[in-house]
């Protein structure tokens, strides 16, 4: 816009000749702030990860070299958090993709009130994480006051204290509930672009429901499924609020994932160096996924 060009001291492109348009002043502000947003904190994280730095104890100072990393890999909590992260991400991915695919095919079929049913089904995605987690923890999973306990007692089973007995399962349930609608929404869009004539032809040739699904629907969805997997992975790697308000990583370290471990190191134990080393690990993990995601999107991009 005009103000941007004047601030940077670059005159606007000649009015009548679009070919000689100079896009730099338009794109540069966004690129610059994103570059700063990425480079500065990342460089600081790398720097801190090689420092002895504790917010509470100024006497701890100086270069640590790789000590923070050495400490991290010899810390059983770190490995536990890595395992927890992978269990959480893996379970939620499997649950949401399988459920999302089946639901997408289901909600693609015409039935009375389908549009309303769809809206209800995608709703959990719009619930803020702290609300989702607390509603599940208190109203549903509470062993005495919760709905699940009441249902269990009604059929003569003992009520389960979910967060004490099955903490990781509980967190996985909450996060899956939030992300099934996302998978459903994306995969439904993909299902709707399916070539109906192809299905029709398959049916003429005597293909049953299952072979139609396996040989036509699934291959058509493969691309969308890979996008869902990658985007979810990016978000799920750093699940935080759901753990923060329900288990605080416990009992013990049963639900401490990498994100929660870093938070605890940094803002509860004030160990900047150690937390930063953990942060670098998180960045590396996410980048492995990001590499494939960006490559997959690049193939589809038309400029």
């Amino acid at each position: 816009m005009a103000s941007v060009t004047t601030v940077l001291g670059v005159p606007p492109a000649p009015a009548t000749r679009g070919r000689r348009f100079n896009g730099l002043p338009f794109v540069a502000p966004s690129v610059t702030i994103l570059l700063l947003w990425m480079i500065v904190p990342l460089a600081m994280t790398l720097w801190f990860s090689a420092q002895r730095y504790n917010l509470l104890d100024p006497s701890v100072a100086g270069l640590a070299g790789l000590d923070n990393y050495r400490f991290l890999v010899t810390d059983p909590d770190f490995w536990a958090s890595l395992v927890n992260t992978l269990v959480l991400v893996g379970s939620v991915l499997v649950i949401t993709v399988v459920a999302g695919t089946l639901l997408a095919v289901l909600f693609d079929q015409p039935f009375p009130g389908r549009d309303v049913a769809r809206l209800l089904a995608i709703s959990p995605f719009f619930v803020m994480p702290t609300v989702a987690a607390l509603v599940w923890k208190n109203l549903l999973m509470h062993p005495i006051y919760g709905v699940f306990g009441a249902v269990a007692r009604a059929v003569g089973l003992p009520a389960v204290d979910w967060f004490a007995q099955f903490p990781m399962v509980s967190v996985i349930a909450i996060v899956s509930w939030e992300w099934i609608p996302f998978a459903l929404l994306i995969l439904l869009t993909a299902v709707q672009s399916l070539d109906r004539e192809q299905l029709e032809a398959a049916r003429m040739d005597g293909a049953g429901l299952i072979s139609q699904f396996v040989f036509i629907v699934l291959p058509h969805l493969s691309r969308a499924i890979s996008v869902v997997v990658m985007i979810e992975t990016i978000f799920l790697l750093t699940i935080f609020a759901e753990i923060f308000v329900t288990t605080s990583g416990g009992p013990g370290n049963a639900t401490t994932n990498l994100a929660f471990l870093i938070y605890a190191r940094a803002l509860l134990q004030f160990d900047v160096g150690g937390a930063s080393a953990g942060g670098v690990v998180a960045v590396v993990l996410a980048n492995v996924v990001a590499f494939f995601l960006v490559r997959s999107i690049a193939r589809r991009l038309e400029v």
Partner: peptide
């Protein structure tokens, strides 16, 4: 440029929690 912008979204927040 577009793809690079997208890739900045992949930076996990927790990786830059301490400096921010």
């Amino acid at each position: 440029t577009l793809l690079w912008m997208l890739s900045t979204k992949m930076l996990p927040s927790v990786g830059v929690l301490v400096p921010i």
